[in-house]
């Protein structure tokens, strides 16, 4: 890559990894093939420190103010927010459906936990997504090894703690293989808290 490496500035606090913010917007009736998905997703920028994160985040629209069907993605630099990416292809995600009004707070708590390495699962975390829909919002956190039950259980436990979710919130774990197969990210095994 010809792009200049992003590094922490002087007196800034480095993060464990560099992260990239992405934005995507889905058009109604548009096919959701991975090709069109890749065309619809735009990089916002990459940061390497806590301070650089805040400079991006403070200027970004909050999920509650997004219109239509849009998503923010925050992924480790070098990992595309697609199940087909080499880092994610054997992985999966915890999916949490939220009633309207909760997404902004939950998204902030989720990404702060991720950036601060609160999940304690080594290099397993790929990134997180908030998807704004008309009737509900969905947040998800992706990890690399769907078959690693100790890791997925630990992520679930930390999610419950950092998100402070209402009782009866539905959490589902779904492998990317299944998401790609049925072309819908948000179905399958349901776990009610």
């Amino acid at each position: 890559s010809k792009r200049k490496a992003v590094v922490p500035g002087l007196a800034e606090h480095p993060l464990q990894y560099n992260y990239t913010f992405w934005y995507s917007r889905r058009t109604l009736g548009c096919p959701t093939s991975s090709q069109s998905y890749e065309q619809n997703i735009k990089q916002i920028g990459t940061f390497a420190s806590v301070e650089q994160f805040w400079r991006f985040y403070s200027h970004m629209v909050r999920p509650r103010d997004l219109t239509g069907h849009s998503d923010f993605h925050l992924f480790t630099e070098g990992i595309k927010p697609m199940g087909e990416d080499d880092a994610s292809k054997n992985g999966g995600k915890w999916i949490i459906r939220l009633r309207k009004g909760l997404a902004s707070r939950c998204w902030e708590n989720l990404i702060l936990a991720m950036l601060g390495e609160q999940f304690m699962v080594g290099e397993e975390i790929c990134g997180a997504v908030v998807s704004v829909h008309f009737q509900e919002d969905i947040i998800s956190i992706w990890n690399k090894t769907a078959s690693d039950q100790a890791t997925t259980a630990r992520i679930w436990d930390m999610l419950r703690r950092v998100l402070n979710l209402p009782p009866n919130t539905i959490m589902e774990y779904k492998t990317h293989t299944d998401s790609i197969k049925d072309n819908s990210s948000f179905r399958n095994t349901k776990i009610t808290l």
Binding site: E51, G116, E117, Q118
Partner: peptide
């Protein structure tokens, strides 16, 4: 290896630090 861990409060405090602004 060592991992760089920050809690929520620390990250929130950095938001208001002069270095961020």
């Amino acid at each position: 290896g060592t991992r760089i861990i920050y809690d929520r409060k620390f990250l929130m405090d950095c938001r208001n630090s002069p270095v961020t602004k």
